[in-house]
Design a protein around this nucleic acid. Structure first.
Length: 527
RNA sequence: GGCGGCGUAGCCAAGUGGUAAGGCAGAGGUCUGCAAAACCUUAAUCACCGGUUCGACUCCGGUCGCCGCCUCCA
């Protein structure tokens, strides 16, 4: 059973989709007048992971995330730069897609543009006018807030109190200061980014595009609507009013992510404490940024700092180490009796169950990740105990551990990067086998001029150490440490410490970190 | 002023009516030819004050502090 905290009711509720087995999610995306910052990226990540988890749970999910490309701020920027609003919107829409793509998180299923939803918006405005919930005035159309008794149900505000405290200035043409524009008449001199309507040339008000797009793609009474907490009022409140006053039930569950802060204050363009997503991704690999996001519950505020990213990186590397170790030891179990994996098996079951339970419980990614770390510790303990006893590792269990870790991390959209790639240039998805012969994938990239190389393992088996040694540097230059590892195993077995150390130095120079294990030399690529 | 949230070890952060996951950092130790990685040990009367309860960090009330929204904002 999936439970989600619903801002509308202020409590966790069981997810009961409108249509059996299907979940529709609408999340508020950016207004494109600048590069997105880390704060903008949080909902992008949160709702992508919600979709991933619901999908893993067997639901058929549609995630709609709008791009608001019609907005006063876009026009303001265009004016300031002497450019067209269309050009500004196009530039930053592309930048948004480029930047968020780098997170390595699957894109939303639909990313509608406000500018492509104008007919639906006009239609909705017409319905509101017909039903008496909106009125035209001087070419603009306003929503009559007092005509909608439920106004304030999401934000917990009462209309009368809003009226008393409102800082909204009375605009000419408004019946009530609380009323808000659903359609804005073109100002004199404006030419771009305008559409014809029954009320003359103009553009939609800020909130209505989301009502229209949500209804268009997910239909009335859709399941989940998400966005940042700061959007609760007035944006989401108004979305509800516009849709429901028109007789169309809106979202049933509202999810709001907490704000990212910097220096104790909300990260916001207006505060000037923003860190652009692209800047962060230039310094930290995508999975590290995801760990940073996901080790705090999505509803809590999250402080941004480079130190926290560094901690996330260390945490990520521990997970990578666990996956790498499970993989390497599964491939190189060692000799002797198989060490009893009962405790590791228990940890595996525990992690599998608890991970899912945490995710089911309002997307508790922090708790879920904790389970993975716990499994990692049990894995390391098992390996340690196995080595201490001079036993062999249980291959099947280790493979199960690796599979579970990778699968769970995949649910969190956290890719296990090739360790050499724990740097921004990394390619997601590569999994290193970890064994002495682990770098086969890299070796493939290195042409051999059609000449089949003698497999390192065969040379070693035949004790042709000189032949092996001759190939070490050549293969190392191709990123293949296989030969070096096997030669080093030989040197260490012969207690040739000088030779073994020298070879380690060469491996390090080639970008590898070297670890001696009872099962042989393990190398790890370092970025 | 109204609405909402938060306050858990040095830092970050889960969580539960029955004596507190995990990550980072620190200290000591183990393993190792030396390393690396890992493991072990080590730290919290869960902001404060009351109340309910056999028992609360977890429920209720109050206080203090911090944050968000009420204006554009993910």
């Amino acid at each position: 059973m999936i439970r989600l905290f619903n801002s509308l009711t202020q409590r966790k509720e069981e997810l009961v989709p409108r249509d059996d087995g299907k979940v529709g999610i609408y999340a508020c995306g950016p207004t494109v007048y600048n590069f997105v910052h880390v704060g903008n990226a949080r909902p992008y990540v949160v709702f992508a992971i919600l979709r991933a988890w619901l999908t893993a749970r067997g639901y058929q999910v549609v995630l709609v995330e709008n791009i608001t490309d019609v907005n006063d701020k876009i026009n303001a920027k265009a004016d300031a730069e002497g450019r067209s609003p269309v050009a500004i919107a196009a530039e930053f829409t592309q930048a948004y897609v480029d930047d968020t793509d780098r997170l390595g998180v699957p894109r939303p299923d639909v990313e509608p543009l406000a500018s492509e939803t104008i007919p639906e918006i006009i239609d909705l405005v017409c319905q509101l006018i017909v039903s008496g919930h909106a009125y035209e005035s001087q070419g603009s159309v306003y929503f009559r807030v007092r005509s909608f008794p439920e106004y304030g149900k999401l934000s917990g505000q009462r209309i009368d109190e809003l009226a008393e405290e409102t800082r909204v200035e009375a605009e000419p043409g408004k019946e009530d200061p609380l009323d808000f524009a659903v359609w804005k008449a073109a100002k004199s001199g404006e030419r771009d980014h305008l559409w014809e309507s029954p009320w003359g040339s103009g553009r939609p008000g800020w909130h209505i595009e989301c009502s229209a797009m949500g209804l268009r793609y997910l239909g009335a009474g859709f399941d989940i609507h998400g966005g940042g907490r700061d959007l609760i009022f007035p944006h989401h409140e108004n979305e509800i009013a516009q849709a429901e006053a028109a007789g169309l039930p809106f979202a049933r569950v509202w999810m709001h992510n907490g704000m990212i802060r910097a220096g104790g204050e909300k990260m916001a363009k207006s505060v000037g404490n923003i860190f652009l997503l692209r800047e962060v991704l230039d310094r930290y690999a995508a999975p590290v940024v995801l760990i940073y996001f996901l080790t705090t519950h999505y509803r809590s505020p999250l402080e941004f700092s480079l130190e926290k990213l560094d901690e996330a990186k260390a945490a990520y590397e521990r997970l990578v180490e666990a996956v790498r170790t499970a993989s390497f030891r599964a491939d190189n179990p060692g000799r002797g009796d198989v060490h009893d994996p009962v405790s590791l098996r228990a940890a595996l079951d525990q992690a599998r169950t608890a991970f899912a339970a945490h995710m089911d419980d309002d997307l508790n990614t922090a708790g879920a990740l904790g389970e993975l770390f716990g499994l990692g510790r049990e894995l390391f303990r098992y390996i340690g105990a196995t080595d201490a006893a001079g036993h062999a590792a249980d291959t099947a269990t280790l493979e199960d551990v690796e599979d579970l870790l990778v699968e769970c991390l995949d649910n969190l959209c956290i890719a296990m990067l090739d360790e050499g790639s724990v740097s921004p240039a990394g390619t997601p998805g590569a999994r290193q086998a970890g064994a002495s012969g682990a770098t086969a994938t890299d070796g493939e990239a290195c042409a051999t001029d059609g000449m089949p190389l003698p497999p390192a393992a065969r040379l070693a088996a035949e004790s042709r150490w000189n032949d092996l040694a001759e190939l070490v540097d050549e293969r190392l230059s191709c990123g293949d440490a296989t030969y070096a590892c096997l030669l080093r195993d030989h040197l260490r077995a012969a207690k040739d410490w000088t030779g073994a150390d020298a070879l380690r130095d060469r491996l390090v120079a080639a970008g590898f970190e070297v670890r001696d294990t009872p099962a042989g030399t393990q190398v790890v690529r370092k970025g």
